[in-house]
Amino acid sequence: MAVIELDRLSKWYGEVIGLNDVTATVDSGITGLIGPNGAGKSTLMGLAMGQLRPSTGSIRLWGKTVWDRPAVLSRVGYCPEGDVFWPEMTGQQFVYFLARASGLRRRAARTAALEAIDLTAMREYMHRPIGTYSKGMRQRIKIAQALAHMPRLLILDEPFTGADPVARHDLAQLFHVLASQGVDILISSHVLHEVEALTKQILMIDHGRIVAEGDLREVRRRMHDRPHAIRVKVDQPRVLASKLIGLPTVTGLKMTAEDTLIIETSAPEKVYDRLPEMLLAGDLLVREIAAADAGLEAVFGYLTGRGAAD
């Protein structure tokens, strides 16, 4: 069963469209929710949390309507983007209180809060008031509160914001561990490479519409109108270019550096098939062969008409 199902879902704020007739599903595992500011990511998350009422259509978690049925939320952990703290509370009190508000009994809430704090590596700081936390620590304690009631689904709005590189790495590891334990995660981020490192499963949104859904590689493969780019770092790029120019599937060649050739092609598999033979024939020394535009950033740029996420 799909974790989240959107069925012709729309949300209007007066005359402003937040989401426009969206039909999509979010399956198990980690799903990246990608889109520029104002694309409708927060609206989608708000609808998934039952905090916004759909204007038309429906949104279901595990097949159950979430609007006006807060019981479903006991299985969902939510980490909002902004700060949501009472500065006088200590980290432990904050997580414990929210575990209790999720319905855990006292003893279970205490244990669960400590576990969530451990998972986010905040035990050392848990007795300090949140007002004294750094931005990264606040981010981690916010994730701890989302984990405190041990949910099945985590909805994380920009969870990497403010975290230092080490904390980002640790959080990414944590999300991988959680996913391996059967926790489904919907994560929004504008740091595309971080989402890409977490998952290939994406939901790309722009102007309130889903512009791409599913496996990133599959999405890229289906973009027939966009030639694929292959970057080859080789000692004699001109020689390689002369060999490639006769291939019918090659639509363009660019030398971007002394040792770098970008091959534009409508059928990358065929180019990959022929490349080893050409390199051997020319006795060329290769340092790298890589897809230059199969990444999330490039796909995002193609689909939204932007160079990168803003």
Binding site: S74, R100, R105, L119, M150, R152, Q181, V183
Partner: peptide, 19 residues
């Protein structure tokens, strides 16, 4: 791996005011 998904019973939601 340390993460324990909740499998026990939760309080009824009308008691969440207590927290």
């Amino acid at each position: 791996h340390g993460y324990r998904r909740w499998s026990g019973q939760l309080s009824r939601r009308r008691w969440t005011w207590l927290a």
